[in-house]
Write a protein that binds this DNA or RNA. Sequence first.
DNA 1: AATTTTCCCGCAAACGATTGCAGTAACTAT
DNA 2: ATAGTTACTGCAATCGTTTGCGGGAAAATT
Lengths: 342, 342
Amino acid sequence: MKTNTTTIKEIAILLGISTSTVSRALRGLPDIKPETRNAVARVAQELDYQPNQLAKNLVKSSTKTIGVIVPELNFHFFSSVLISIEEAALQAGYSVIICQTHESYLREVNQIENLVNSRVEGLIISLARDTTHYGHIEKLIRKKIPVVLFDRHSEELNISKVIVDNIKAAFEATEHLIQRGCKRLACLAGPLNLLISNERVQGFKNALEKYNLPFYPEYVSHGDFSKEHSMLQAFNLMNLPNPPDGILTISDRIGFAALHALKQRGIKIPEDIAMVSFNNEPFCNYFTPSVSSISQPIQEMGKEAVNLLLKQIENESPIPETIMLKTQLVVRESSMRKVEEN
Amino acid sequence: MKTNTTTIKEIAILLGISTSTVSRALRGLPDIKPETRNAVARVAQELDYQPNQLAKNLVKSSTKTIGVIVPELNFHFFSSVLISIEEAALQAGYSVIICQTHESYLREVNQIENLVNSRVEGLIISLARDTTHYGHIEKLIRKKIPVVLFDRHSEELNISKVIVDNIKAAFEATEHLIQRGCKRLACLAGPLNLLISNERVQGFKNALEKYNLPFYPEYVSHGDFSKEHSMLQAFNLMNLPNPPDGILTISDRIGFAALHALKQRGIKIPEDIAMVSFNNEPFCNYFTPSVSSISQPIQEMGKEAVNLLLKQIENESPIPETIMLKTQLVVRESSMRKVEEN
DNA sequence: AATTTTCCCGCAAACGATTGCAGTAACTAT
DNA sequence: ATAGTTACTGCAATCGTTTGCGGGAAAATT
């Protein structure tokens, strides 16, 4: 389909002037006689001229665009961070291109390549589940393309990132469960190679250790965030000879599904089993019982990621910076057991 | 920050050949001696050459990109359709740029303009809540830029769209409530000027009419999908002298919040009030009671939207086509009242 | 040996803008 | 009247590719 777009040249010919004059007139540069300026404006209006961004970008070799890559658009956490990223970028005069990897390493590599070829000026990335080696990211650094990681990062990468203290957050959540009287604690985790999942498990372990509670490996199970996996994880926990009386789930996606599974088995929450989850999605409030969850600073996360990126883009400061934001445990019914005084 | 990218020219100079030869060699065109081809490949590899997509697009005046505009990335329905849109586009060799309007008309206009200036080859749009006149869309048609609307459309626009029969869907849901013994039916709707909301209300009315049930205007209330609005809508309904015994909500976002509000008031669902909602988000299963909801063909919707768009892009067929997809009522606990035989 | 064919490759224009520099006309100052 | 400004505008190169056309050398055909 041939879309007829008018160019600067057509305007120039129509008015019998040069393209440079038209260009300058349209952009409000000085040194243009008012009459010419008006004439140009008029004709541009009539022909509904729209500048070709591609040409513009090519000559200025600047796109004022940043690329954002997330595992899944569908996850409430990511779509929310995206909103704040876009907001912050827009304010700084940048637009964003959003891509998703569907947790696939190959797709991540592809998407990054595409964005780089399209000359985005920087990238904000949350790594895919399947990403276990980081050559593609290191290549970006070598090429001096600004990159910021958020949430799903890697310790191997010495690079700017904005994250939360997952270990501490999980520790606090577990501690809370212990203080509510839980003795046999379980943890429903994500994929085995996912750093943030492992960090949260670590925090879980730390809390057990501090309170001298035993750690049983079979009380920690891994899944892929899907409803099916998560419910299975919960069922398996129930089928153990000595089921847990407190569960930490490292994501609301897992938590909600697990809650569903437990309720299906007629287990009373929080009396039989208390629960704390991660992310504090709005739905936590809606469930019966409402779900205690660790709130992530979504707004800030997006804003800081953009800030870090812009700093790299504009100040050519390649010194990697890590911003660690605070989480907050929001206690609701699912963990509010009555605890006998002693 | 100056990112040093290698160009075709540098390769050419390094090898003492012309840029055209390099270009052809890299793209595997014929008429290139194997040795030159290899040499080019080698040097390109060494210098980590990445073609400049901007330049490419400019000369080919084709970007193989489509733009998608949705009101809010955060809505499960939209992010899900986006996934299937991206999938379908990718398969056809197109990439997608995703934008959100946050329900604002001005932003919609802006985003469209940007995308057009960036020379996307077509647009898939779900209109913003605040969009009440359609000059910006009509302009696209005048300029022969392929456009497809989905979900949030407008009757004023004679243009390709993929939608569902909202009237029929709401009718069936309401009929179901009536068949489960509801006599006083209410409807929690969205913004007043939102077509799909009004269509659903219309279907609601149609069912009342068919079954000779009275329609009270105060039983239909409008909100903006927010938790606060939706809960308020529900509370207002409860405060009526003669509260309803059946509620249709035109979106799960409203439905979940309403359910929460009703439960807060100690109302038994479905015994006191039965409920059916719209969209069949995965969470419907998780609630207590689980929520009956009308399932939208999300996958298909995305796929068909892309198909319609590609048809316009590639076949220059500007004949508007409307694809109406089937919904399905998924009955769960929230509407399963015991109904006495008679 | 002359002609044709095949194989490679380069020149230069094009895509649609921006921009440094130069040039002309009008206006001001001497 | 001449020199010096000032106000505008155009030329041409540039960004990094692609592509039609033409041409020379080698190989094949007569």
